[in-house]
């Protein structure tokens, strides 16, 4: 399987990456290289093997339901590009 330039551009758009025409070609080559590795992996017969979601065969540790995080808004907002009335400001979202 190999990706078309259109597919590469679409993946970039979904990831919010701006890539030039020259970068598109280079990225396409790299991604196709990765896909070639995956094709080798897919050649292995995994019938009857339970799909794996995580490399480590251990389960999730849980925390108890307690409020442990203090309010640190001032510290966080000191490094934000723009804030007002306690809100983070971002470029207008059009919906």
């Amino acid at each position: 399987m190999s990706l078309t330039p259109d597919e590469v551009r679409r993946i970039a758009r979904l990831a919010r990456l701006e890539i030039s025409a020259e970068e598109t070609d280079r990225t396409r080559e790299q991604l196709n290289g990765i896909l070639a590795f995956i094709e080798q992996l897919q050649a292995v017969d995994t019938a009857g093997v339970e799909p794996m979601a995580h490399a480590m065969d251990i389960v999730q540790r849980l925390r108890s339901d307690a409020v442990t995080e203090p309010d640190r808004r001032e510290a966080f907002q000191a490094i934000a590009p723009e804030t007002e009335a306690g809100l983070y400001l971002v470029p207008k979202v059009i919906e």
Partner: peptide, 11 residues
């Protein structure tokens, strides 16, 4: 989406 100088506020 109220107007914060043309920006959106996030809570």
């Amino acid at each position: 989406h109220e107007d914060f100088h043309g920006k959106t506020g996030i809570d």
